[in-house]
Write a protein that binds this DNA or RNA. Structure first.
Lengths: 329, 329
DNA sequence: TTGAAAGCGCTACCAC
DNA sequence: GTGGTAGCGCTTTCAA
């Protein structure tokens, strides 16, 4: 920067101002400076700037996984909302592990982000402590934690599944099965299973018929394998709910391979409203939980807190969801 | 850090050393320091450390998009390889736009990454200049640029499509159609189309039958719409190649809806070997280009260049691909 | 509108 | 194994 200043015949301070949008610098001084910048191929060093201004321009976001999951939509919502704000997203993958989350939180906080967006409300004690100590806004998403750290953008995963069971029961189905992952670490998956079980109990239907298969996020292939297990153990199952659309799709395709008609022989429903469910044949019933909006709303709330407009106001933003009944049920 | 040093009764320098893995600090001094760190809830400030050590610990990677695309696999390969190296990934989405890429490169370089991974070889002049000026290792991926900036990890998109056409021609298909996106900005998509056309010419088959539909990455729905156009204009088409598996899947499902048999009435092939293609019914013929490996190899090469082992040695790493013929052809 | 001085929080370097 | 000093490249603050 000193080189640029010298070439333009000004002080570094003036260069610094010229490089910001708001800087009060005369038109022609700025022009001279920008020419010098261009000639030298100078690129501002933000790490130095951050240290001095005590604003890093970072925002951290932690998701369980990005591949084949709804969280990629949420991440996109965050990214799009941050675009143009000058904030850079630091993205981390927890792989559904609280320990890995803790480790990521620590390394993210070393970068001094101005805010952080988390998935879910299950964190290690140490992680909670670091977050509180950091004194930056924290947004938890995708569920409703019992003890939120700060603000929340989410919905009740159990209520969603309960609604789906009821919607299908209203169509006459009585013998329900559920396909989910094996891990207890996927708290959202667990809540969905609980919602399923509660609905079965409320409706006084036959319990049981739970197949756990694969580590979240469970794949198409695992959905296919799970439906085979399901039909071996309980051949008279009438409707199967899956923890996600991908497993539902795997189950559907496996049925087609085995000439099991969907929905005549068995109904299949998923979760997440992936594009695949809307265009496969038959189309899969599912739930749209507004993944993209969760990201957008979380980022917007974070921006407001960072701006100081709503600092410290812990808000619970409930996001809407919609059960979509389609040809597969 | 001064607070920690005071509490532990040492200098800040010793605290700094204790907080690195390699620091030469006595067992008990380190213990005392870590206790002080814990008591005060101190978290190291890496932006200050970066400024001083002139190592930011950042690596930048730019991909066209993450949602429903092979690039999410590549990003995962990069992330996994970087894990445990202490390097933090800065991820950016160019949306297939060279201008947006240029803008992202500029903002990434302000963070002083120690290396950068790009998708493709088409960059604006200004972007190329910034990259060269930055003097950090640059890895271009997913294609073979005519004028690489530095090292490359990729394959020939046109050769892949040519091979696919030939594999299908060997099975007896003669009247080929191609479904791709409308944008000229997706250079990989363009190269695939060129490979398709070249193969048709080499085999002396009937030309034409190109449907362009939608902005990349083209969706399942757009694949469905495209096959409808294709069959309206050229009802006797025998085999359709799609720019990606998602569009192939959309085309396949649309055929099922219209009771057009695949592959008896028409054969369909995709690109990318998405999980969906291996498990839908019928399974879709496609090409596996090792998306995950591209990410892994690019990150590994970058790490070697950053370590200085291979600094400045511009390498071309050709990644293998494999045509997979399945039930849909 | 511009400049000078001070210092952000850490680590490189060298001394002990 | 440990500490003192200097300084990374910028922005804040205050003065002109």
């Amino acid at each position: 920067m000193a080189d640029v200043a010298r070439l333009a015949g000004v002080s570094t301070m003036t260069v610094s101002r010229a490089l910001k949008k708001d800087g009060h610098v005369s038109r022609e001084t700025r022009k001279r400076i920008l020419e010098a910048v261009d000639e030298l191929g100078y690129v501002l060093d933000q790490s130095a700037g951050s240290l001095s201004s005590r604003k890093t321009g970072f925002v951290a976001a932690l998701v369980p996984s990005l591949n084949n999951s709804n969280f990629s939509e949420t991440a996109r919502g965050i990214t799009e909302t941050l675009e143009g704000t000058g904030l850079q997203l630091l993205l981390g993958y927890t792989d559904y592990s609280p320990d890995k989350e803790e480790q990521l939180i620590q390394s993210m906080l070393q970068r001094r982000p101005e805010g952080i967006i988390l998935t879910g409300g299950a964190h290690t004690l140490s992680a909670r402590r670091m977050l509180v100590n950091s004194a930056i806004p924290v947004i938890e998403t995708w569920e409703i934690p019992e003890e939120p750290i700060d603000s929340v953008v989410g919905f009740s995963n159990s209520a969603v599944m309960r609604d789906m069971v009821k919607a299908l029961a209203a169509k006459g189905y009585r013998k329900f099965g559920y396909i989910g992952g094996t891990s207890t670490r996927d708290t959202r998956g667990n809540m969905r299973k609980i919602g399923f079980l509660n609905a079965i109990k409320e409706l006084d239907l036959e319990p049981g018929r739970l197949i756990s298969f694969g580590v979240p996020p469970i794949s198409i292939e695992q959905g296919a394998q799970a439906i085979v297990s399901m039909l071996e153990r309980w051949p008279d199952t009438e409707a199967v709910l899956c923890v996600s659309d991908l497993s539902a799709f795997g189950a559907l395709m496996e049925c087609q391979r085995r000439n099991i008609r969907v929905p005549e022989d068995i109904a299949i429903a998923g979760f997440g409203d992936y594009e695949i469910s809307a265009f496969c044949h038959p189309r899969i019933s599912t739930v749209n939980v507004g993944c993209h909006d969760i990201g957008r709303l979380a980022a917007e709330k974070l921006l407001r807190e960072i701006a100081g407009d709503e600092a410290g106001n812990d808000e619970l933003i409930l996001t809407p969801y919609k059960v979509l009944l389609r040809e597969s049920t």
